[in-house]
């Protein structure tokens, strides 16, 4: 990413001029995801959940990783998108794609408004404001029983077939493929965004907002734009989750949801595109495995992993390869490139 030759490629196609190894690297995760569909039929709803959380973690990567917006409020958008999709399916139309677009649009508006209100603050004050955003929504959703179902969750969602053809069936075939396609679309959008000059300016803002302002970058507008896009992505993940499970519970708006998605992203590694993939998969596998030992053990392990990542592995699991290579280069006496 710090390689200048990649910047020039941003104008052309994303895959143009890429080495066969890099192409294979990009194809691998998607091949695994498609292969999973055929070989792991019994685990498709588990797979769908992972895909949804990958998308959610990607949305956080955009704001937190690329733009350096330290937020704990991402659950606000995920939850809002889920409730918007659920509400739409009950009161307007059961069509999942219309509902999905509705949820994305509405969440983007919420992101735009809340971002416009709070993005001029920094540091702890900003963090507190993002926490307050989640808490206001959570408490409101808890009170507004006629819209959200309050504590019982939003029930009675009707989800129609996609394009009037593909029913959401019990085994989750449709939900899996649908979620994977949505993830792929967002992934391509995000890739384009972060490789664009706009994405470069986010890099600069993260590293030194004051200097970026001094060279004439409209910092506030850039942050607002990326915050809105990130909110829309999180809302999309929320809508997917509502459609896949036909249920929205209050927990989508909890601080724990914000915490968990942050853990996933950090475990996998920020600003790595596939960091969210690795993090979400590792998180779910660890959770699934340790929950069998003791229902609370997973929290201990996940907390410990987070502490270890922050202290010893700042680039996340995706950086393990890089660390190994640097060690190898040091051992073999080759000077590593700056």
């Amino acid at each position: 990413m710090t390689n200048p030759s990649e910047t020039q490629k941003a104008g052309g196609g994303l895959l143009a001029g890429m080495s066969p190894w890099a192409l294979a690297g990009h194809a691998l995760p998607w091949a695994i995801a498609i292969g999973f569909f055929f070989i792991a039929e019994g685990y498709l709803s588990f797979g769908t959940q992972i895909i949804i959380w990958i998308l959610f973690a990607l949305s956080l990567d955009l704001a937190l990783g690329y733009a350096g917006i330290v937020t704990l409020g991402q659950a606000a958008f995920f939850g809002f998108g889920a409730y918007a999709a659920g509400w739409f399916s009950i009161h307007v139309s059961p069509d999942p794609i219309l509902g999905h677009l509705f949820a994305i649009g509405l969440t983007a508006i919420v992101g735009l408004i809340s971002g416009a209100l709070i993005l001029h603050t920094t540091g702890v004050t900003f963090l507190m404001l993002t926490l307050a955003t989640v808490l206001i929504m959570f408490e409101y959703a808890n009170q507004a029983k006629e819209i959200t179902g309050g504590d019982d969750g939003l029930q009675g969602m009707k989800v129609g077939p996609i394009f009037g053809k593909y029913e959401f069936n019990l085994f989750g075939h449709t939900a899996y493929v649908y979620s994977l396609i949505v993830l792929f679309i967002w992934f391509v959008i995000m890739w384009r965004v972060v490789k664009s000059p706009f994405g470069r300016s986010l890099d600069g803002i993260r590293q030194n907002a004051r200097r970026m302002r001094a060279i004439g970058t409209p910092v506030w507008w850039r942050l607002l734009a990326v915050y809105t896009l990130s909110a829309a992505m999180a809302g999309s993940a929320g809508a997917l989750s509502a459609h896949a499970t036909r249920f929205v519970g209050l927990s989508v708006l909890s601080l724990l949801t914000s915490g968990i998605v942050t853990v996933m992203l950090i475990l996998g590694g920020t600003r790595r595109l596939y960091g969210a993939f690795v993090g979400a998969i590792v998180y779910f596998v660890v959770q699934d495995y340790t929950a069998k030992i003791s229902p609370y053990f997973w929290e201990f392990i996940v907390g410990g992993m987070l502490i270890a990542t922050v202290l010893f592995l700042e680039g996340g699991l995706m950086d393990l390869g890089g660390i190994a290579r640097r060690q190898w280069e040091r051992l073999t006496g080759k000077a590593s490139k700056p």
Partner: peptide, 14 residues
């Protein structure tokens, strides 16, 4: 923020 969230998780589980 991240490390102290990790501590919260560990303390809660403990």
């Amino acid at each position: 923020v991240l490390l102290t969230i990790g501590l919260v998780f560990v303390a809660t589980a403990a």
